[in-house]
Design a protein around this nucleic acid. Structure first.
Lengths: 154, 154
DNA sequence: AGACTTAAGGTCAGTATTAGTCAAAGAAAG
DNA sequence: CTTTCTTTGACTAATACTGACCTTAAGTCT
């Protein structure tokens, strides 16, 4: 119970808390050196603990002056359960399931009626223009669009 | 964000912003001297960051009195133009094309840096979890997310 | 006008500097 | 003992930087 990965996770979260901007930039090689581990260990920590779903945005660049930047967004409580709902969307989503989710979010004032309409229109447009895998695309789109709305407003 | 190329990029963009005409003229050798680097470094920055896809026009002349002129395309109605840009996204979109579009929209203040980060993160997440048809999904997602942003703010 | 000189900028391939991926081995938990 | 989580390292990929060599334009001198 407190693996190296946990320590690295805690360290990054400490850095995030003490930053004004809710984001930190670090060097993978430097980090690996500090914790005496291989660089890919850092990727492991990032991919298991700093996911979008948990409110983290990880960006990186290779090459000279490369970096890994981690941003954090606090989702307030009213949106927390909405974010949870998103998690429950699987790899496929049919029309009825989508309507249920949108209706629920509208009723709970997470999205506005206009946003509901917009999402419906956009999804219809995109899904209509492909032959196969409509339900897979719909799942991705709904998750993406709702996530953008939720994250934008918190 | 600390490579030399980044600094040169930022410097040029500052110059562009403070110019009335949306274009600046500079001397390659002088620039290289100011930044203590080889002249071809300037070409590197220009060819990686000031491309036509991102809305920049670079002209130059060799020989005595040679120069490099960089212009930034300005459109009267940037939202209409953005909508147009979206329409131009075909059924597939690779990473580079996406980055060009996002950089263009950010530079023209259609999306905020934070929205850029979010879009990048969301697309990465969604595209990463499928095997085939990444470019097709990316096209749909980018179109959908940008459309939502543009429609929400107009 | 033509040849030579000087003053730019362009190209490209090679080197350096990061970070990412993936699968296999090892450790911990159930 | 099986499953899941962690750790490792060999290979890969992206980005930045440099320098040698090339091209073009303008001036200068017969």
């Amino acid at each position: 119970m407190s693996s190296l990965a946990d320590h690295i996770e805690a360290y990054i979260k400490r850095m995030l808390r003490s930053s004004q901007t809710n984001s930190v930039e670090l060097s993978r090689a430097q980090m690996a050196d500090d914790f005496s581990c291989v660089p890919s260990q850092i990727n492991y920590v990032l991919s298991t603990r700093f996911t979008l779903e948990r409110g983290y945005i990880v960006e990186s660049r290779r090459g000279g002056g490369g970096y890994i930047r981690i941003g954090h967004v606090q989702v307030d409580d009213s949106y927390a359960h909405a974010a949870n709902l998103l998690k429950s969307i699987g790899s496929e989503l049919d029309e009825k399931q989508m309507e249920d989710i949108l209706a629920y979010l509208k009723d709970h004032h997470v999205i506005t009626p206009r946003q509901l309409q917009l999402i419906r229109g956009i999804v219809q447009q995109e899904v209509g223009s492909i032959g196969q895998g409509k339900n897979v695309l719909r799942a991705s789109l709904v998750r993406a669009l709702l996530f953008l709305i939720i994250e934008s407003e918190s």
